[in-house]
Simulated assay, not measured.
Amino acid sequence: MCLQRHKMGAEDFEPLTMIRKGAFGEVRVYRDKATGHVYVMKKLKKSKMLCRGQVEHVNVERNLLAKVDNNC
């Protein structure tokens, strides 16, 4: 069963810097406007994932990262 998530949008975060750009998107550092906490998020381009057949791989990665609780 997937973990329940609080719905958040792009307007809830302030972009700080880009870490890396990859084949499907980019990884950036964001600050939560409400709490000031800093997060790293991956922004993906769905069209590129679909045409390369990587949807299942991305879903597995998302589910794994959702279960991990680590400050690093």
Results as ranks from 00 to 15, higher is better:
M18I: 13
R62T: 03
G36D: 13
G22Q: 12
G53M: 09
K46L: 13
L16S: 05
D69K: 11
G53I: 01
C51G: 03
A66H: 10
I19F: 12
K48F: 07
C2P: 01
D12C: 14
K67V: 04
H57E: 01
M18D: 11
E26C: 14
L44E: 11
A66Q: 08
V29W: 09
V60R: 05
D12R: 06
A23I: 13
I19N: 14
K43A: 04
L16N: 10
E14G: 00
M8C: 07
A34R: 13
N59S: 00
L16P: 07
L64S: 02
T17S: 12
P15N: 11
D12S: 10
F13P: 05
Y39S: 11
K46A: 05
E61K: 08
V55Q: 12
K48S: 11
L65A: 03
E11I: 00
K45D: 14
R52S: 14
N59E: 02
G22P: 05
V60I: 04
V40H: 04
F24P: 09
L50C: 12
S47E: 14
C72S: 09
G22E: 15
N70M: 08
K42C: 07
H57F: 02
L64N: 03
N59V: 02
N63W: 00
V60Y: 03
V68I: 15
T17R: 15
C2I: 01
D32W: 13
M8K: 01
K43Y: 12
A34N: 10
M49V: 15
V40P: 02
K42Y: 05
A66E: 03
L50A: 12
D32K: 04
K7H: 08
H6R: 10
P15S: 11
K7T: 00
K33G: 10
S47P: 02
M8Q: 08
T17V: 10
V29G: 02
K48R: 12
K43D: 09
E11T: 09
M49P: 02
Y39T: 08
M18Y: 04
C51N: 09
R5W: 01
V40Y: 00
I19V: 15
L3S: 02
K43M: 09
V55C: 10
K46M: 13
M41K: 07
F24I: 13
V60L: 02
D69C: 11
Y30E: 15
F24K: 09
N59P: 00
M49F: 03
V29R: 13
S47F: 13
T35D: 03
K7S: 01
V68M: 07
R28K: 15
D32L: 11
G9T: 12
R62I: 03
C2R: 05
I19Q: 12
N71R: 02
G53S: 06
L16A: 06
K7D: 09
L64E: 02
E11L: 04
L44I: 14
T35P: 04
K48Y: 08
K33S: 08
M8E: 06
N71T: 06
